[in-house]
Design a binder for these strands. Structure first.
Lengths: 202, 202, 202, 202
DNA sequence: AATGAATGAGCTTTCATTCAT
DNA sequence: GATGAATGAAAGCTCATTCAT
């Protein structure tokens, strides 16, 4: 008679809630591990087995939670983007004030700072055509409203060519993010942010 | 005796020079084809067979000119970078004037415009950690002098924080290039270039 | 304490009989579901999970009733065959009269008609060598007495070559059954049965 | 200097014809081996590796000749059916005479006799729903004209219900073939054929 | 009796690379 | 120089079965 039998005489299956929790925990664990490996080694150089091994599960279990390797990537990106959307959502459609715009810039980089690995992956994805296809929709849905808001802001500020200004600004954000993500230790992020504010708010 | 043998029999033996030239031509052909496929489909989604087929040679022959798939990538990137270094080399180490700086910006984008496919590949590469390792040295050797030159320019212009200014400027160049390369048709490059000049030269 | 536990607490302990009956019901339910899926999709394309899901139980529970997937198949075939034997069993070993023979033919097809799914599976099984091995014994035990009875009948009727006649007759039954099972809607079963009777009873 | 170098000083690739022949031979070899294994063990119990091993090639090479395991099956069935069609094709659309009908029956079984393995596979296929889907079209195109010819024959012979007669006859052919294929050694084929002729030609 | 998470062997398929010709 | 048949390691994925609860 083993420990288990002593504990409970009649064995009962776990409740629906317990199973749900187990699933949630494992799913998050796999996502987290996969994100790290994808960001570190790239999507194609990361094998399902390596994800399973690092997570401490069997490779089969992964397919209990994700339909395929691509689905795993999709879900990771979706989740990451959703978190950002949520943190950004100030539920008002008014045009930004200058202070809000500055706050927007700073907040943007704060998020990057706090999710460096995710952004490494995100950038790697948007640049790789075949991988991009997999998550294109998720990304478009995410970035479109922000870009519109920016354009409205620049228009309201009386900028000559708001479309170009928006493209430049978002390109700058991309470029700075990429360079920061690639080598965050040697990148003077604060100084660069202040320079951006200087160049776009005066 | 088939046609091929007849042809071989009739033809004069080629000189060393001729052989070398033929090698060069074929090598360039393979490089060009591979670059297109890499840029279009990504490194991993491009097979050696597809390169061989598009080039019109056998896959075996490819290994007569390149040691491996990675070697092919390395050589393509090296070659592309060298071409750019050459076209940039104004063989003087003086500090740039404002006009030269403006010319530098414009020239930079001209090169991108004329080698869109290469830059698509280049950007895809610098972002992917494991692929980057393969060509890291080539890239570093290429970009370092340019960055120093920029920093010297900003210092001479009396900019407050030349290091941050350089980082921002090169980040902008990266960001704009990426966005232009990703969707060149919808990117108002001229307008954006003028905006950059406006923001960095006044 | 969740709903389930409350229920368990309030309910009286079931008698041995009740438990046995519950087992029987559940076992039949699983068998029936599996039969349908096997017949529809084939043995290998039917997963244990799909059977469990369609039955409305957990996959683990299935192994409480059947030792393995193969055992499940075996039990289904056994059961189906036994039902037929029972329905055929006229518990007399006398030689068939002509009327009884005609009744035998008609009854045979009636059974098929009423168990179309089972026969679809049955036919699929007898034809597939490795699956056949699993249920070979059950099938042989079932068909042998019937074949002997047929041979005796033909012998009694004064047929020249009763062995060949029996083989042909049982082959016909198989062939007609297969073609009926494959596409029952477009098969003129009644007409064909009458033709068989015509060709074998005159 | 090895044997090869002694033989020919300048190494030449094989001619297109040689390559084509190599392909043809290997393809046939793989088909033949796969047919045997499919017939013996069933489609699902036959692994690509076992086919490769028995053929004496690497598993990868198989994919040089066949797109997939399903494609291999399809090609085997197509080829087998085509051979039969060819051997049957008497390039006249006239209605069969009684002698030709008898010859048709005998010829049919001759073909089965000479391709026992293929027919084992063929029968296993037509009975298994999911495998059938893969080769349905090939089979339909093959059997339709023969059935029409039969119906015309029976109509011309003044049979009461030619549709039912055709269905019965083809069912008999199927049934006999199946029983013969399953256990050819104990099946009195000649006697059974004569019985069929007796029952359908008088 | 009942649950469903977890396992892992085994499958099909891909593709950079080699090598006889 | 040139060919393409051939290799085989390694990948993603499936699913019958087990087991803690």
């Amino acid at each position: 008679m083993n420990n288990r039998s002593i504990k409970t005489f009649v064995m009962c299956p776990r409740s629906k809630e317990q199973y749900k929790e187990i699933r949630k925990i494992k799913q998050d664990l796999i996502s987290k591990t996969a994100l790290e490996l994808f960001a570190e080694n790239g999507f194609h150089h990361t094998t399902i087995n390596s994800i399973a091994q690092k997570t401490g599960i069997s490779n089969g279990l992964l397919y209990n939670y994700f339909e395929s390797k691509e689905d795993l990537l999709k879900k990771i990106v979706s989740k990451g983007i959703n978190e950002i959307i949520t943190s950004f959502d100030n539920n008002k459609n008014d045009i930004l004030t200058k202070d809000e715009f500055i706050h927007y810039i700073k907040e943007n980089f704060n998020i990057i700072k706090n999710n460096l690995k995710f952004w490494k992956l995100y950038i790697a994805i948007i640049i790789q055509p075949p991988v991009l296809k997999i998550v294109k929709n998720e990304i478009l849905n995410f970035s479109a409203p922000g870009l519109k808001k920016l354009e409205n802001y620049f228009t309201a500020q009386g900028v000559k060519n708001p479309v170009a200004e928006t493209k430049l600004f978002s390109s700058i954000m991309d470029g700075v993010q990429i360079n920061y993500v690639i080598d965050s230790e040697n990148f003077p992020l604060e100084d660069v942010i202040n320079l951006i504010i200087l160049k776009f708010c005066c």
